[in-house]
């Protein structure tokens, strides 16, 4: 479980996040949604400690993260898996080496087991026979998937995925969504997915957090989402014609 309490973040004079309070439950897919530029990625980076918020705190299973010393922070981070919006694969390492990296750094298993684990993770994201290629030699969507494979390699307790579906075709997108859901349920992971893909929200979101202009505007379950009368939320989710048809069908 991750709790965010009264978190605010600004860069210079621009206030990006204001007083965010949220509880991200364990064993659930927590989705953070919102318009481009609303502050979703910044929120994720504040939670994992890449940015230090001006106010508020983040608690990992009760432990307040920003007050911990460097070593204790590293301990928690070894239990975090994160997919960056930009994938952030290491360009000097091959696809396989990228996934092996956290294992080689921290896992206490034999080299063959590491290899087996890395291949398993790659297989789960549908990346096969790409072991020896470098990140610059694979497509953007593939980079995203390799990023997910690297994030889940260590079986993290906390999983952050920033836009796992951007750049993916609808079919692969569903594979990834299902993978994230399976892992979350199987290992009781605290999962935070940042997305603006309504298909994922409708498919796998357990708890949904809507960020608008840097504030937590609305939170609730997937069912509550469709029936909410929050104006900004409705504008966001019913922006596409497909979702508008869903609403029409529901009302009719």
């Amino acid at each position: 479980m991750i709790e965010v309490v009264g978190l605010s973040k600004r860069f210079g004079s621009t206030q990006v996040l204001t007083d965010i309070n949220a509880v991200f439950a364990k064993g659930k897919v927590n989705q953070v949604i919102g318009k481009s530029g609303s502050g979703k990625s910044v929120l994720a980076k504040c939670i994992v400690g890449l940015y230090v918020p001006e106010e508020g705190e983040v608690r990992y299973d009760g432990q307040s993260f920003h007050t911990l010393d460097k070593e204790a922070k590293r301990q928690i981070r070894q239990e975090i898996g994160m997919l960056f919006q930009s994938s952030a694969l290491f360009d000097s390492l091959t696809v396989l080496e990228n996934v092996l990296f956290p294992l080689r750094m921290f896992a206490t298993m034999a080299p063959e087991e590491m290899l087996e684990r890395a291949h398993l993770c790659l297989k789960r994201v549908n990346i096969i026979d790409k072991d020896g290629l470098y990140p610059s030699e694979i497509s953007g969507g593939m980079q995203k998937r390799v990023g997910i494979a690297r994030a889940i390699a260590m079986n993290p307790k906390y999983l952050f995925v920033d836009e796992p579906n951007s750049g993916l075709d609808p079919q692969t997108s569903i594979v990834i969504d299902e993978l994230i859901q399976e892992l979350t349920e199987e290992y009781g992971t605290t999962t935070i997915v940042i997305t603006h893909d309504m298909n994922s929200v409708m498919g796998t979101g357990d708890n949904i957090f809507f960020i608008h202009q840097g504030r937590l505007w609305w939170k609730g379950t997937r069912d509550e989402l469709l029936t909410s009368d929050n104006k900004e939320l409705n504008e966001f989710i019913f922006a596409g014609s497909l979702m508008r048809q869903v609403r029409k069908a529901m009302k009719g």
Binding site: I80, M82, A88, F90
Partner: peptide, 9 residues
């Protein structure tokens, strides 16, 4: 990529 390293601990 440095952030990615930091996040891994």
């Amino acid at each position: 990529q440095i952030d990615a390293l930091d996040i891994m601990g």
